[in-house]
Design a protein around this nucleic acid. Structure first.
Lengths: 117, 117
DNA sequence: ACCAGATATATGGATAATCATATATTTGAG
DNA sequence: CTCAAATATATGATTATCCATATATCTGGT
């Protein structure tokens, strides 16, 4: 009941938020600078959309030094997580989703946090 | 590739379209008058949203006498159908989705087509 | 002619993009 | 240690764009 279906789907309705959520679903945790780079948008723009996702209760953020890391919210209902997982899998080969993942891997100077666990 | 993820999720972003699609997912086929009654909106309004779903390739329609029946499009990718099924299951107990199904069952004078198969 | 359904147009309200600015944290000079 | 600069992110405010609704009208089938 915490997260309504309406909130989830209006969040997913924007291409940028969809791409961001699918990335988070697959990567676990990403910082703002990574999302900015991969999605190739301005910093205020990604920040805006992340704020929306945060306010909708879909993601949670954590500050570590200069960086802020986002992940899917732990309280996301199971069905919602599965919706994301299924979508990620369904569109895995398509553009721009496949390119996003490639761009992430290719990104130089990623702040670690998950690189050398 | 026929149906993009973007189209699916922008369709789902409107509460009315979400409810309609979930009903179709569960019921198989419904006519416009049933959707109008259950969702309690004006005829032009439901017609407009159904037209959007049709143009997005999410549903197909079939005329039978006076009535027009809608169903999920047969060409919907598997993952998209699963997204709908999973959502339907996930919100089954919640409002207004549970009420919608109840209203459908309680509706008087439904055109048959699926009542006495 | 009557009924179910579809569409056109106009209007109001929400949503997004943009630029500028603000906050938090770290780094380095003195 | 303190203060200024630099970096990462967030937020205000404005403008533009899109989307939904309402009313009226049209079409297609009986």
């Amino acid at each position: 009941m915490t997260v309504e279906a309406d909130s989830l789907f209006s969040a997913l309705a924007h291409p940028l938020r969809l791409r961001a959520l699918l990335l988070l679903q697959q990567e676990g945790e990403l910082c703002v600078c990574e999302l900015t780079h991969v999605l190739a948008v301005s910093q205020p723009m990604i920040s805006r959309h992340l704020a929306q996702l945060r306010q909708a209760g879909l993601v949670s953020d954590r500050r570590q030094g200069l960086w802020v890391y986002y992940r899917l919210h732990a309280a996301l209902p199971d069905w919602a997580q599965q919706v994301l997982a299924m979508t990620a899998e369904g569109v895995a080969g398509e553009s721009p989703y496949a390119d996003d993942r490639a761009a992430l891997v290719a990104m130089p100077n990623r702040p670690e946090a998950s690189c050398c666990a």
